[in-house]
Amino acid sequence: MKTMTTVLAAALALALAGCAAEPEPAAPTPAPTAAQDTPAATDDASAAAGGIALAAQARVVLAEVQGSGVTGELTFDPDGDALRLHGEVRGLAPGSVHGFHVHETGDCSAPDATSAGGHFNPGQMQHGDRQSEGPHHAGDMPNLTAGDDGVGRVDIRLQGLQIDGDADRDVVGRAVIVHAQADDYATQPTGNAGARIACGVVELVQPAPDYQGPAS
């Protein structure tokens, strides 16, 4: 009997030791809060530091001048060391050709839009054809030609211009002007393009939403 009692006591002691060694269940992890679920917002500088450059974009809303009926919307996008200007100008005579420039001052308030000043010309160059090898104003652009529907469709690359940067190249705060006649690229300093029939101020849009920085 004494032996049996000893065996039972030893078995009970082993069972109790096993229970003591068993770890307690871990407390459940609390669910993340809404603040933890949402990534922290970053500003432009921190995004750039993470390797994603944000590029600015600029737009122009053209309004008629002196009842011309000419309106339009244009967008400037970064394109390497240049800007790409694209959009539409409406209300033109079918097949007509018009001088088309970036002007110095973003002010279309004068009835004839002369408040926009002359062509944007920080380099003090002669007026000329951007598409030739000769000198030209920074704001000189190819003539605008209307289609049969009276719409001038724009898609041009403007070397040397930029957005939100060096003042000598920056188009933001300038104006885009459509003229009544074609630019002859010879008459100084205007190209003999006639009256101003549409004017719009170049405004900054921050940032271009789909720009992911230069390719690595």
Results as ranks from 00 to 15, higher is better:
2 K>L: 12
2 K>V: 10
2 K>H: 08
4 M>K: 14
4 M>I: 15
7 V>E: 05
8 L>V: 15
11 A>G: 09
12 L>I: 12
13 A>R: 06
14 L>I: 15
15 A>T: 13
19 C>S: 10
19 C>H: 06
20 A>H: 09
25 P>S: 05
26 A>Q: 12
27 A>T: 14
29 T>Y: 02
30 P>T: 01
30 P>F: 06
31 A>S: 14
31 A>K: 09
32 P>L: 14
33 T>W: 11
34 A>M: 14
36 Q>I: 07
38 T>G: 01
38 T>Y: 07
40 A>L: 12
41 A>Q: 13
42 T>G: 06
45 A>Y: 07
45 A>C: 08
47 A>L: 15
51 G>K: 09
58 A>S: 09
60 V>L: 09
61 V>L: 13
66 Q>Y: 00
68 S>T: 03
68 S>C: 04
70 V>K: 09
71 T>C: 02
71 T>M: 07
72 G>P: 07
72 G>W: 03
73 E>C: 00
74 L>E: 08
77 D>A: 13
78 P>W: 13
78 P>H: 11
79 D>R: 10
81 D>G: 10
82 A>T: 08
88 E>Y: 01
89 V>S: 12
92 L>W: 10
92 L>S: 12
93 A>S: 15
94 P>V: 14
95 G>Q: 08
97 V>A: 09
99 G>Y: 13
100 F>T: 04
103 H>M: 11
105 T>R: 14
108 C>Y: 12
110 A>T: 03
112 D>C: 03
114 T>K: 13
114 T>S: 15
115 S>V: 01
116 A>F: 07
118 G>A: 12
121 N>W: 04
123 G>Y: 06
123 G>K: 01
127 H>I: 09
127 H>D: 04
128 G>K: 03
129 D>V: 01
131 Q>V: 01
131 Q>G: 10
133 E>H: 04
135 P>G: 06
135 P>L: 05
136 H>N: 08
136 H>A: 03
136 H>P: 02
138 A>M: 12
139 G>F: 06
140 D>K: 03
142 P>Y: 03
143 N>Y: 07
144 L>M: 11
145 T>W: 00
150 G>A: 08
150 G>L: 07
154 V>A: 06
157 R>F: 00
158 L>H: 03
160 G>R: 01
161 L>Q: 04
165 G>Q: 00
170 D>S: 04
170 D>H: 00
170 D>N: 14
172 V>M: 02
174 R>Q: 08
174 R>K: 15
176 V>F: 06
178 V>N: 06
180 A>R: 15
182 A>K: 03
185 Y>G: 00
185 Y>L: 03
188 Q>A: 06
189 P>C: 02
189 P>K: 02
191 G>V: 04
197 I>V: 15
197 I>W: 02
199 C>T: 04
199 C>L: 06
199 C>S: 05
202 V>Q: 02
203 E>Y: 00
204 L>I: 09
206 Q>G: 01
206 Q>A: 13
207 P>Q: 01
207 P>I: 00
209 P>C: 05
215 A>W: 04
215 A>K: 11
